[in-house]
Amino acid sequence: MELLGLYNYWVFAILLMVGFYAVIAKSNLIKKLLGLSIFQSAVFLLYITMDKVEGGTAPIIQKGATDQIFSNPLPQVLILTAIVVGISTTALGMAIIVRINEAYGTIEEKELQDQNRDP
């Protein structure tokens, strides 16, 4: 049971590296971007895992109630904004990929490198 408390961190590590694998090993640019999104989600999971307090609830203070335990609001604030920024930056990456496709006719890294080699 003691070890189960670390399961969230293990999933974080695995997700992080699954995303990283897509970034370094895949040739397709969109696949790389999806890998980056998974990588990002893994970091979100790490932060939100740290905010949990045993027996706590979401940090919304009920009037009149005393002795409530709340989870940590700070990581939640950081991740809440990071999610919105994440989709904006992903969209920017997608826009660049669309332009690459229009200019070179491919979004495969290998073909792009070949075009670069013999113009």
């Binding site: 969230n8 989600s41 979100f44 939100i48 895992t49 905010d51 949990k52 307090v53 706590g56 609830t57 979401a58 940090p59 919304i60 989870s71 990581p75 939640q76 991740i79 809440l80 999610i83 919105v84 994440g86 989709i87």
Partner: peptide, 17 residues
Amino acid sequence: FFILDAADVALTEAAIG
């Protein structure tokens, strides 16, 4: 996220992601 008590973050992730 919801299980981990982060209701605001869960709502954001569901709407955005």
